[in-house]
Design a protein around this nucleic acid. Structure first.
Lengths: 347, 347
DNA sequence: TTGAAAGCGCTAACAT
DNA sequence: ATGTTAGCGCTTTCAA
């Protein structure tokens, strides 16, 4: 067993010496589409294995200006949807042979984080549930760093937004309520200044009016459980109580079910139908059996990473918006699945 | 407004030219403890601001052999505890001026991920809910890369494990059940081959026997909700049903409450007391009000990052194990908080 | 205190 | 197909 003398980093030189070839031969052996003879490649690989050598990505990046690093900025992960989204995104990035440098957005220090990521020369930037200041947008553009936004539609140039079709799915929920005979239909908004919350409200209203119904009341729950508790109390305290509530995410919908049962003694779905958004794990739990919208996270992250790969090679302009078709998942909180022969929307 | 001619990356040379100083002056202006006159520093800073310059971390790392990159390997984030842990860990890493390169462990490709991180010359490696093969352990040691394990105690050299005091907290739960008058007390294990699940069982048994009680039955729920459902059905189907179950995490405990109520029509805590571990958000929800153990995630990640910083400067041997004191959070699932004057354990 | 020069580990253009 | 040479952008001795 040949050993390395100076403990510490093993370099291409060490491998070259051991294999009896030049440094460039070693480099070529580790470069996918390079001219190396079967023979030298074998020698290099054996030597590399022996020494436990692996090219230094930093040094490599310095010459290739490809780091295989993707910067990811996300929010707090208390919301399980964000957690799952981040997990799948990271997995997809690593499946594509890259690595994710992840930051949690401070909201206040968002620009600083992006600047930091840029100093690592990330090949691309992915923003999940986060915005981009126009200042940073131009810095990314100048550095030729493609930016992909997931789950937020950003009105900024040179950025591709990947979201599910919030309007379509929300309209489907609205129509579901009406078909189930509900008439006092309420909406619980997420964070009011996000595109997702606005799109969901717009779609929901459209779905209602398509069947001749109209919104009875609404409140803001800020996408959090606590906010959902407050908003649910507000809605249900009304003198004319709603008989159906569409919450802009599951966290608020679960809170709404809790409040309806515990604080108001209501039966779900008898007295009150509730629907959410995200199809989180808890939506399927026996206690809730919550109707919800599956955003197709795998589809979203796949699109996002495809956009990254395209942008990295093309270096050109990018598509502005990608819409992922969601799926409505009906459970007992809206009276259970509809009859089997009724067609689902979406593909 | 002076602008940069060649769009693309701005280098120290550009700044030097604009500021009328040398490259090294620029470098020194960006190096905390370096000899630069107030005057040149000011000139450099102004020029850098104007150009939007920021030192290239990759190039810098190549000479300093400090990347300010921390490799993080974690598991699936379906478990909200892992999600919160990861979030806080990343936040703590970025507060320390470093960046986290995050991978989701494939279990099968764990070694490959670590090797990949090593090729980025990460300053340290953090494993959360993950193991380390002895092969990789020696590669880390050879490269002088410190390894910190969170939430797993690993029997490997040169590694520091940060966990909460699982045994202490679990013993407290055991004693709580006995004090509340329960005698048919069961344990629901997590993944059987993890140190956390084993330590919790050991502590729980110890707590019981300390008050003269003994374990009635046990099952394995693998730390998942589905697993918890199955294990709860198993335990509650017994001819002599348990009247208290300690689940090794909240996900399983919530599942147990659901099963007890929905499938067996039991009252919690009347017919069955349930306690969990992690003090996840859902444990506080009105439907569950679950007694649980708060592992003090902020304390865990703070210790972990302190260990990183210490290891990076010292390059010496490290402490083997850090125990974080947890807190018992009593809620209605075990009959509500005890009287106010009864002392809590831990600090 | 500052600038000039060397080099971190690698890849790529050029010769062979 | 292989080796030689010249950098990638930075820090850091070494002189001045």
């Amino acid at each position: 067993m040949t050993e390395q003398s100076g403990s510490g980093r093993i370099t291409a030189n060490d491998v070259a010496r051991l294999a009896g070839v030049s440094r460039s031969a070693v480099s070529r052996a580790f470069t996918p589409g390079a001219y190396v003879s079967r023979d030298t490649r074998a020698k290099v690989e054996r030597a590399a294995d022996l020494l436990g050598y692996r090219p230094d990505m930093l040094a490599r990046s310095l010459t290739t200006s490809r780091t295989f690093l993707v910067g990811v900025i996300t929010t707090h992960l208390d919301n399980p949807f964000y957690a799952t989204l981040l997990q799948r995104l990271i997995e997809e990035i690593q499946r594509a042979g890259m690595a994710a440098v992840t930051f949690i957005a401070d909201e206040t220090s968002n620009d600083e984080r992006i600047s930091q990521l840029l100093s690592y020369r990330v090949d691309a930037l992915v923003l999940t549930n986060t915005s981009l200041s126009s200042k940073m947008s131009v810095r990314c553009a100048r550095g030729d760093t493609p930016v992909i936004a997931i789950n937020r539609y950003l009105e900024v140039d040179n950025i591709v937004s990947v979201t599910c079709d919030n309007e379509l799915a929300s309209a489907a929920i609205g129509k579901l309520f009406v078909k189930k005979g509900r008439r006092r239909i309420a909406y619980m908004a997420g964070e009011p200044d996000t595109s997702s919350s606005r799109d969901r409200e717009r779609g929901f209203r459209a779905g209602l009016s398509e069947l001749g119904a109209t919104l009875h009341s609404s409140a803001v729950g800020n996408y959090s459980h606590d906010g959902g508790v407050r908003a649910a109390r507000e809605l249900l305290s009304s003198s004319v109580r709603p008989d159906a509530i569409f919450c802009a995410n599951d966290l608020m919908a679960l809170a709404t079910v809790d409040v309806a049962r515990k604080d108001f003694g209501l039966d779900v779905p008898g007295d009150l139908m509730v629907a959410g958004f995200d199809n989180s794990d808890a939506a399927a739990w026996a206690t809730y059996r919550l109707t919800s919208v599956d955003q197709n996270i795998p589809g979203m992250v796949r699109s996002a990473v495809e956009e990254i790969e395209a942008a990295v090679v093309e270096r050109g302009r990018m598509r502005r918006r990608v819409l992922i078709p969601p799926t409505l998942v009906e459970r007992e909180s809206t009276g259970g699945p509809k009859s089997i022969d009724e067609p689902k929307y979406g593909s």
